[in-house]
Simulated scan of single mutants.
Amino acid sequence: MSQEDFAQRVYWLVTRIPFGSVATYGQIAGYAGSPRAARAVGTLLRHSLENFGELPWQRVINAQGRISFKGDLGRAELQRALLEAEGVVFDSEGRCDLNTYRWQPREIFWDVD
């Protein structure tokens, strides 16, 4: 699969995450056909605001249920505020309960090799 195909799948998947739900970077990478590409998902989403203003990038978090901010505290605060506005609750350690909020699609979207 090309990088462009992977990026298109990532963006498409992120648009499918329902309001009030989250997915992890690894989860999106796996559904997109590259389960070891969680960092690539993060890179794509980090640039998503410039490219895709309507993309609900805030709904993708790390595998611990936390927001990853890599030194961009302003964006992390924005992400948390956007998720809280959708009803996602974070504990005192900055974690949301993935058992409660994780998106679990019911079907496979495409065949991946």
Rank of each mutant, 00 (worst) to 15 (best):
C96W: 00
L98R: 07
S68Q: 12
G94Y: 01
G65Q: 04
N51F: 13
A7M: 15
V89R: 15
E54K: 08
M1W: 11
A23E: 08
Y101R: 06
L82A: 11
M1S: 10
D113H: 13
W110F: 14
G30P: 05
Q3C: 04
I108K: 15
R9A: 02
V10D: 02
G94R: 05
P56T: 04
A40H: 12
R106P: 06
D91H: 00
H47P: 07
R66Y: 00
S68M: 10
S2M: 01
A23L: 03
G26C: 06
I108G: 14
I28E: 04
G26Y: 00
G20S: 02
A76L: 09
N62K: 07
E54N: 07
R16A: 06
N62W: 00
Q27K: 12
W110M: 12
R9W: 05
F19I: 04
W110N: 11
P56W: 00
S34P: 02
S34D: 11
V89P: 10
M1P: 08
A40T: 13
F90R: 04
S2K: 11
L98S: 06
S48H: 05
S21Y: 12
L98Q: 06
A32P: 05
N51S: 13
A29S: 12
L83M: 10
I17K: 03
Q104E: 13
P105L: 04
Y31D: 12
G53F: 14
T100V: 14
F6M: 03
T24V: 02
A29V: 07
Q3I: 06
G94Q: 02
R102F: 04
G42I: 03
S92I: 06
S21F: 10
L55E: 01
L13N: 02
D113Q: 14
A29K: 01
W103V: 02
Q58H: 08
G53I: 13
R95P: 04
L78R: 09
G74A: 14
L55T: 01
E77D: 00
R39S: 13
F69R: 14
